[in-house]
Amino acid sequence: MKIEDIKPAINHSVLMLYRVFAIVSLYAVLAGVLIFGLGSAFYAGSKTWVAPVILSQGDKETLDLTSKTLSTQNTIDELKLDIGKLENTAGEAQSHKAKLEKLLPAIDEAIAQEDQHKRETGPVLVSLDRQKNSDDTRTQGALIKLADVDATIDKELAAGLITKSDATQATMLLVKANGELTDSRIATTLLKDTIWEKTLPSTTYLDTLHKKTELESEIACLGIVIDSAQKQIATERNQATKLDQALKVAKQTPLWAAMQGARTNVALVPYENQAVANEGAPVYDCYLSFVVCRQVGTVKARFAGEQHATHPIFRSDLRGFLVQLELTDPDSAKSKTLFVGSKPLLF
């Protein structure tokens, strides 16, 4: 058999195969284009679709949130501990400051009383000192005169004019008078000391003033410590409050729910479709993306806060918020899109 004889049969077979392949391919391309076009047009106009997302403890975002939550809680605890320490420090400082502040009037009063006493006794002592000096001078004059008497006694005793006992008695009186003069001079000197203390500032007085200044300085330092501690307490308390609020907000997010449980079904609602995403609204899942639909659950909760995602069909940036879904068929969460409120095509 020649090749030319079987060539028509080969051609026919190849042509048949080619035509079958061509028809299938062309219809596939046509169907693909139509489906793509219809799908794009549908999702461009639909106001009920949402993009489901399954959250679980193992998700990167959930793990991130867990880590951040723990870190935040740790920070809050540290802040509270620090606030307690600062409050103790401030309280102790305030107590100490109060005690020191009570000392100041007593010191002032003592100084004032001392001043008053000095003012009162000082001039009197000066006057007495003058009088004493005068007395001492007169006494000394009298004793000078008695010096002749001492010599006279010895002579009179030797002359037998007086008895020995009289002489001794007279000598004793003379010695006693001298001793009294010396005592008087000592007293005068001591009086001068007293007058100096009463009329001029003493080192004790200055020491007291120095201590008073130190006390005032310590009180001022304590004031600064208290003020600084109170400011830090206010700052840290504010910080703790904010972190606490942030934690409260985080606890209202679906990721927190995912942290607590094994799996949480949520859906991103584009802002264009927010009107339908109310709590309790029915959720539909469809075959062939949006053709034959059945109810698979409801919207459980609506979360605040903007979320960004990629459009499941157009791959463009998408802005919206999350809702938590209560799904009777958990597999529906794996669909590319779900519909909220009503079936997209009424069947």
Binding site: L15, Y18, R19, F21, A22, S25, L26, V29
Partner: peptide
């Protein structure tokens, strides 16, 4: 695509 599949 059309031209490649309609050589016949």
């Amino acid at each position: 695509v059309l031209s490649l599949l309609t050589f016949d």
